[in-house]
Design a protein around this nucleic acid. Sequence first.
DNA 1: CTGAAAGCGCTAACAT
DNA 2: ATGTTAGCGCTTTCAG
Lengths: 360, 360
Amino acid sequence: MPETEAPRGTPTIREVADAAGVSRATVSRAFSRPELLKPSTVEHVQAIAGRLGYTPNVAARALSTGRYATLALVVPDIANPFFPPLVRGAQQAADQAGYCVFLGDSDESPAREDVLLGRFAGQVEGIVSASSRLAAQVVRRHADRRPVVLVNRDIKGIPRVLIDTASGITAAVAHLAELGHRRIAYVSGPQTSWSNQQRRRAIQRASSASGLELVTVAARRPTYDSGVARVLDLLASGVTGVVAFDDVVAQGILAGLATAGVSVPDQLSVIGCDDVVAATTSPPLTTVSARTDEAGRFAVELLLRVLGSSDVRDARYVLDTRLIVRATTGPAAKIASRSANRTTSGGGRAMQAGRKIFGS
Amino acid sequence: MPETEAPRGTPTIREVADAAGVSRATVSRAFSRPELLKPSTVEHVQAIAGRLGYTPNVAARALSTGRYATLALVVPDIANPFFPPLVRGAQQAADQAGYCVFLGDSDESPAREDVLLGRFAGQVEGIVSASSRLAAQVVRRHADRRPVVLVNRDIKGIPRVLIDTASGITAAVAHLAELGHRRIAYVSGPQTSWSNQQRRRAIQRASSASGLELVTVAARRPTYDSGVARVLDLLASGVTGVVAFDDVVAQGILAGLATAGVSVPDQLSVIGCDDVVAATTSPPLTTVSARTDEAGRFAVELLLRVLGSSDVRDARYVLDTRLIVRATTGPAAKIASRSANRTTSGGGRAMQAGRKIFGS
DNA sequence: CTGAAAGCGCTAACAT
DNA sequence: ATGTTAGCGCTTTCAG
């Protein structure tokens, strides 16, 4: 490599040292450990550095110290309104600690998530993985290389922050029972989602505790369209109340019901989950609140703590939730079983859909 | 620094070289320039490296080459639904090119954005700044240090991709004029937003071209609540149609109108902008479509091109838009001027609001 | 409190 | 086609 005499883009520590008449070590300390220097020296060096527009080269620093001052945050789908607030919370916490954050979007694909984690592992100090779709052992493999903190995924031995929607769901079922509902539906989310499993289990338990009949309708992807598409099944199932995997699905259901001429909450009650979109639907959605921004913030704070002292093992933060009653729930309709004939698609198709309902 | 004999976390290039019986340069080339090596050598080295779990140290590589393989994307508010799709598009494009992306959220604050850009400048190859709230000269200063590509901000000399909502807005006004509206309102967005200026100008031009009266109501922050809060002003202004800065504001307006018992589109027509949320409102929102995901994708592709050959100067991509008519627009209501007295807050307050309307 | 100097792990001339 | 070697810019013992 040829000698580079010409002053390049940004000045190096050496140029600052020369200009300030001190050694490179002193300049370095002026930036990273000013307490080791005489205040006047620090001031002097900072002044010169400022005038020259010097900024420490992060790559050189990282190479030398092994510390990157970066974090990675990976989510299954940034376009899902559940995640932006979480990202924001994580961002702020990272920022306060002087960390920059890489964002990764796995597009709901475990394979892509695996690739992302692998790629990030090489250039960050730690990783926050939200709603991971990866197998536990794969997560462990990554966590073996770099500290990993999970959000809404419960794997023993890996620090995690969990939004306990179970409590809110339980309240939701109780709410429906109180309103006189006897038969309700759960519209489920991604099979590989921990949240979905948690919610399904909670609603099953709560239903049988309250003596309610429960049917499950699978929505797979937690999208608006997916919610719309499940309306037929719902109508055919003869339920008077439905709890959706999340607000987005619930919103789709609301829209589908409106199209089908079914009034909410008079004919059917709908409850969402996460409270990410709930205040903006019409009617305003009754939902289970979740402080997703806090989850993000906690996750990086936890990660930071892990990085600080590696003896934080098996931490498990649980954030509780509660039911927020808005306008989509009401007394159970008189007619317990609604025929799907009122929709234009005809009885045959509805029956077909009806069979599918009990699958998962 | 003491000699580190013990094999550390991840193997270094030297260990792979030793194990493979080749020089470090060969290992390096096997990863970065395999075409310079005999295929069999590449294979051999890769095998050994794989077995050892070797991964090139990015910091070392960055320090040596000056290339980071990272990009930064900064947005004013990731929780604003306009941005997630854009982030996603950017992400995908970066990913395809093997780049990792830092995300920054400026929280709508120019000062924070400035800090973020400065911080990122030191550790990325280039920056995409979406809807920058920074003064042109500040942006230029950053662009001077690192390649910057702008989204929805038009600064001469800086590569940018612009979503031309003007065309869609013009169509929107024409649409309203056709429906018989004579007096309409524009609910504006952030003063420092280029998009807002563009939209305001477009609607002014189109209104006078169609002979429509236009009043402007300021919403400052483009939020749902802000939209709700502007409903009183709107009702007091006696308009029959309104164009909102974006879908989120429009959605708030819709909600506020519903609360006030004003029916849409019978009594008032509402048009949004961006089409980010429009299909999920009720009634479905008539809006100006914008391919935000493409904007994100284009921006990083453009940035990558700038990085490749630095002779891409003053590029200016414009993505066009069009009006999507859904269910919130209809014929102008008969009664041109609605009194605000029907709201509970009383006439005095409404009048006060009425005066404010014409401010900006 | 400050300086000298040895690396951190990798790449890129320059040899061969 | 592969090896040698000199840094990239910074931090950090170890001396003084």
